[in-house]
């Protein structure tokens, strides 16, 4: 049996790969409570990684898609609508499978990307690895869901706000940046908070779909399931991961709540929209 300190050094960063901790995962009767807490926590690194990058990158892309869907030009509107329909209408689980198989049959090409200061070697083989392939799927998926939220908000921007902008002579980019976009964010923020929470939960699907966990480095649920299988006891590993996720969800709510307060700081306190749980956007 390991002590808790040993568990921490051996498995604290194990989710990143074999080079960052013990070669093998603990097995059978050798598994201690500390192992489970540490290793599942280590897996959370991946959940946070996927969520942070998918949400931040998806935010910008979703704004573009929402604008395209609200555009009067058919050439912009149709592809944006189709994109949103495909990613919202099909299960994320199937999207992962499909994307993985597609990335598998792509020809393996290695090229170099010149970033000015340094040259980066890029290979399409990375697409079949979770850190890139699954991130792309999550990014596109959250973009579609977020775009639909933003699109709804764009359509609800009060007419009076736009007329006031016209009266001040604001047009084009200035009007978008100073009136439309902030109002859109304000209106959509409660829904967007839910989207972020559910995207974070959806990151647990990554290692259950096609994407393999190389060197047994997976996310929190991958390890929780591993422990439940090894010890044949679901009553320890799953409550641990549940606790981690509740903590992380509270963190997300706090962060988004702070942004929500900042977005609505011009309103009297009781007129500010409250963040509400609306499970419309599970995948």
């Amino acid at each position: 049996m390991r002590t808790c300190a040993e568990s921490l050094t051996e498995y604290g960063l194990r989710a990143l790969g074999r080079d960052y901790g013990a070669q093998l995962l603990p097995k059978g009767a050798d598994i201690s409570l500390c192992d489970q807490i540490v290793l599942i926590g280590s897996g959370m690194i991946w959940n946070v990684y996927f969520a942070v990058f998918a949400v931040t990158l998806g935010f910008g892309f979703a704004t573009l898609i929402a604008l395209a869907k609200a555009s009067p030009l058919r050439g912009l509107r149709a592809p944006a609508t189709a994109f949103i329909f495909v990613f919202r209408g099909s299960p994320l689980f199937i999207q992962f499978f499909f994307a993985y198989e597609t990335f598998q049959i792509l020809p393996k090409v290695t090229g170099t990307l010149n970033l000015g200061i340094m040259e980066l070697s890029v290979t399409t083989g990375s697409l079949t690895r979770a850190w890139l392939g699954a991130l792309i799927v999550l990014f596109l998926n959250t973009s579609a869901y977020t775009a639909e939220i933003f699109y709804g908000a764009l359509r609800s921007v009060p007419k009076g706000d736009m007329e006031a902008a016209d009266a001040y002579g604001l047009t084009g980019w200035a009007r978008f940046r100073r009136i439309t976009w902030p109002t859109m964010l304000r209106l959509s923020w409660p829904s967007y908070t839910n989207e972020a929470i559910f995207l974070f939960h959806a990151t647990t699907l990554v290692f259950f779909s096609g994407f393999p966990a190389w060197q047994q480095s997976g996310d929190a649920l991958y390890y929780a399931r591993y422990f439940a299988d090894q010890t044949f006891n679901p009553f320890v590993a799953y409550p641990i991961i549940a606790a981690y996720f509740i903590l992380a969800t509270l963190g997300i709510t706090a962060l988004y709540g702070a942004i929500n307060r900042r977005l609505n700081r011009h309103l009297p306190r009781e007129a500010r929209p409250r963040l509400r749980f609306r499970p419309q956007i599970i995948r």
């Binding site: 939960h201 649920l221 509740i246």
Partner: peptide
């Protein structure tokens, strides 16, 4: 709200 649904899908049947 706080826990991914898939955790319940794995937990409930075996529990």
């Amino acid at each position: 709200r706080g826990v991914p649904d898939i955790v319940f899908f794995l937990f409930v049947p075996i529990a």
